[in-house]
Design a protein around this nucleic acid. Structure first.
Length: 739
DNA sequence: GATGATTAAA
């Protein structure tokens, strides 16, 4: 107890202590001068000096006085909970008030579990029962921890006690169930509050908002009015938040006028909530108007404006706001990074992350790392991904499930399945997203069996699969041709696992049936679906038709698809490929004309390869690269070498009708993935694998070429396309031709 | 001697 052996130093406000003879627990010094000093304390050092004095005089053994000390230790600006706890442990018989103080302090600390630990100790050691103050504190801790079983236990204790109708406790319970996403229980408690106050309503409204039920939140707001209960600023913050979720600008504007009309006190938080509502409803103009009028702005106000501009894609404005902010905290950096990352600009995201590193103006937090890792995943950029992983380790940042998921996803999508598995195995706590990410990783690398095994391991670990898990596992089955396993899992989803199949799951099934050649079953499956088929469903069937060269069904699927999504260029490309493959060149040109007429362009194929941290991108026939001459020389060499061993280009993978046979061959030879592979061959060491990322599906001819290159040049090639990985080695591909 | 509900980023 080093902290307790503080010497009595010269104490500026020290007064002469009355010399009391004996010390006992009943001693009371309500007006004792030392006590008022406690409240004037401004540092832990002073507090320790008072503590020492109290020990000397015996005042410490007066429960009232000791509690005062604990309160200040635990709750003041310079608080030290550790010290407070040590002090607490020195009190021979703390009273209920003292127990409550320490429970309360822990509940709002960064370590709320201690609150519950102390509570349990109190049940054992304190002769008094928990009172109406105790429960709100421990329930707050349970809410923070989302400890639903523990909190439910508290609920039970409350009901058995005489406190079952205390409005403070019941409101805390509403809040607790709300934080545990148990809206039913929250609402049940709410309904049973005998005399609801405004906090009851606010808690329930907030619970609905957070549980993604904005309509219920509005409904409650209306009921509140009908009961003639005046909403306050906090009510409005909740309702505005709901409004943002609904993106209903009209209602939002009405709410703002409601606030004015009803004279609700507008403070900074409420203004920020209105700003946020405008931004979420897509009106950065309204937000700007309010922002300019606000008497006081804080970092949240600025960050919200920043968010508003990025949402509208107005990055110039956004950057201006970012520069103008009084201080750029990590949240502001995160808005920029995540906005770029989520809007298909992963390079920009990483560049902002890099600037953050250089500027050192804020410390990256979990959100920064998650967004940046996701940018790496999108780019297939393993070097910055590895760097972030090392950063996490060096900073001693503990891997939580969010970060773990991102790391697994990054390694898997950058082609390092081994490393993804290593991260997966290294963590103890695995939530459903961690498991699902690993299943997805195995799936995209063609390890369908392993993915299924992992799924069963996950069940054994008592983690409940969700919709994401099933998308990934079905995807694994369809990528590996595990029709039976996939089908059986699909039909178990709802009855066994209580996960209602969504459109993604149906699409996986269509894909799975189609790929395995059961095109008719696939069509029948679509016709029997309980939800209307979407473009992606028909797209899956169309893809399968291409694989099996079924022109008729392809035309049907394509027609359906275009009806739902007339501008879907992918559909045109797939159908065109099918025509080309079956030598229906007249139809290819007709389709081509239709595309031209409606102004639909094929999304250009783009392949990228990262060398020494720099991402090089190639389009078809690209000659913008500085080393383009060398690249084309290498391509010619590859073509000659492969021809010599008997390779014949497969021309059916062309979209357009190219009259001259030579031209066709050339166009094929200039596919972006081939350019990237050629560049990889000349710019990496022979021992290095070549990692290429393509935005579309890899073309069949390029696939064949990559296989041969991997053999002739003795190079591993990792090619990630839109759907999965192709790991070429010794003339074989990990996909086993199943793609 | 005290308690509950409040805004930004994945």
């Amino acid at each position: 107890m080093a902290a307790l052996s503080v010497p009595v130093l010269s104490f500026p406000h020290q007064r002469k202590l009355p010399t009391s003879s004996t010390v006992n627990n009943d001693l009371r010094f309500p007006n004792y001068p030392l006590l008022s000093l406690i409240e004037q304390c401004t540092s832990l050092k002073e507090l320790k000096q008072i503590h020492a004095q109290m020990l000397r005089t015996g005042l410490f053994f007066d429960p009232f006085s000791a509690s005062k000390l604990i309160t200040v230790c635990a709750m003041s600006s310079f608080s030290s909970l550790d010290y407070a706890h040590q002090v607490f442990d020195q009190i021979p018989k703390p009273n209920l008030y003292t127990w409550n103080t320490i429970i309360r302090a822990y509940a709002s600390s960064s370590d709320p579990i201690q609150s519950i630990v102390v509570f349990l100790r109190m049940l054992d050691q304190c002769c008094e029962s928990p009172n109406k103050y105790t429960y709100p504190f421990v329930l707050k801790a349970a809410s923070e921890l989302k400890a639903s079983r523990v909190g439910r236990g508290f609920h039970g204790m409350v009901m058995k006690s005489s406190l079952a109708s205390d409005v403070f406790i019941l409101n805390s319970l509403v809040h607790f169930y709300g934080s545990c996403d148990d809206l039913d229980s929250a609402y049940r408690v709410f309904l049973n509050i005998p005399s609801k106050d405004v906090v009851s309503w606010n808690s329930m409204i907030k619970a609905f908002v957070e549980g993604d039920c904005p309509d219920e939140a509005f409904q409650l707001f209306r009921e509140m009015e009908m009961e003639n209960l005046k909403p306050n600023d906090i009510t409005m913050v909740g309702v505005l938040c709901a409004c943002g979720k609904k993106a209903d600008i009209e209602f939002g504007r009405w709410l703002c006028s409601y606030i004015q009309r009803n004279g609700i006190a507008v403070n900074l938080t409420l203004n920020n909530a209105m700003l946020d509502m405008y931004v979420k409803c897509g009106s950065v103009e309204d937000a700007k108007e309010l922002f300019d009028k606000m008497p006081e702005r804080d970092v949240v106000s600025w960050t919200t404006m920043l968010d508003g501009y990025t949402r509208m894609g107005k990055y110039d404005e956004a950057l201006r706001v970012f520069e103008a902010m009084p201080n750029q905290d990590i949240a502001a950096w995160n808005v920029l990074i995540s906005s770029y990352e989520q809007n298909g600009m992963p390079k920009e995201a990483l560049s902002v992350f890099h600037k953050l590193q250089v500027s050192k103006s804020a410390k990256p937090d979990e959100v920064t790392l998650v967004s940046s890792l996701s940018a790496c995943s999108q780019l297939g950029s393993i070097d910055p991904g590895r760097w972030i992983h090392i950063y996490i380790k060096r900073q001693g940042i503990k891997l939580n499930c969010h970060l773990t998921t991102s790391l697994i996803d990054m390694y898997a999508k950058c082609g390092d399945l081994e490393k993804a598995l290593e991260v997966f195995d290294s963590v103890e706590r695995k939530d459903v997203y961690v498991w699902s990410a690993m299943i997805a990783g195995l799936a995209m690398h063609g390890c369908g069996r392993a993915a299924i095994d992992l799924f069963y391991e996950m069940l054994k670990a008592k983690v409940k699969p969700n919709a994401v898990t099933f998308t990934n596992i079905l995807c694994a089955c369809s990528h590996t041709g595990l029709l039976e396993e996939g089908t059986s899992l699909f039909y178990q989803m709802e009855p066994v696992y209580k996960v209602v199949p969504g459109v993604k799951h149906y699409a996986c099934m269509v894909d799975m049936l189609g790929r395995s050649g059961r095109l008719k079953d696939s069509l029948e499956f679509i016709e029997k679906m309980p939800i209307p088929p979407t473009a992606s469903i028909w797209g899956a069937l169309l893809g399968a038709c291409r694989l099996h060269g079924n022109v008729e069904l392809a035309e049907h699927a394509c027609g359906q698809l275009l009806e739902l999504d007339p501008r879907n260029h992918g559909a045109y490309v797939l159908l065109s490929n099918i025509y080309a493959r079956t030598d229906k060149w007249d139809r290819v040109s007709r389709l081509r004309k239709a595309m031209r007429d409606s102004g639909i362009k094929k999304e250009p194929g783009c392949s990228s390869i990262e060398i020494n941290g720099i991402v090089h991108e190639f389009l078809v026939g690209d000659n913008s690269h500085p080393l383009c001459k060398d690249i084309y020389e290498k391509l010619d060499e590859i073509a000659a070498t492969l021809k010599a061993i008997g390779y014949v280009p497969n021309k059916s993978h062309l979209l357009q009708l190219v009259e001259e046979e030579d031209m066709k061959e050339q166009a094929l030879n200039l596919h972006s993935e081939k350019l990237a592979i050629a560049f990889g061959l000349i710019s990496t060491a022979p021992s290095q694998p070549i990692r290429v990322v393509k935005n579309l599906r890899v073309c069949g001819d390029c696939h064949a070429v990559a296989k041969l290159v991997s053999k002739v040049y003795k190079r591993e090639i990792l090619l990630r396309d839109r759907y999965r990985f192709h790991h070429f080695k010794d003339g074989h591909c990990s996909c086993g031709e199943y793609w």
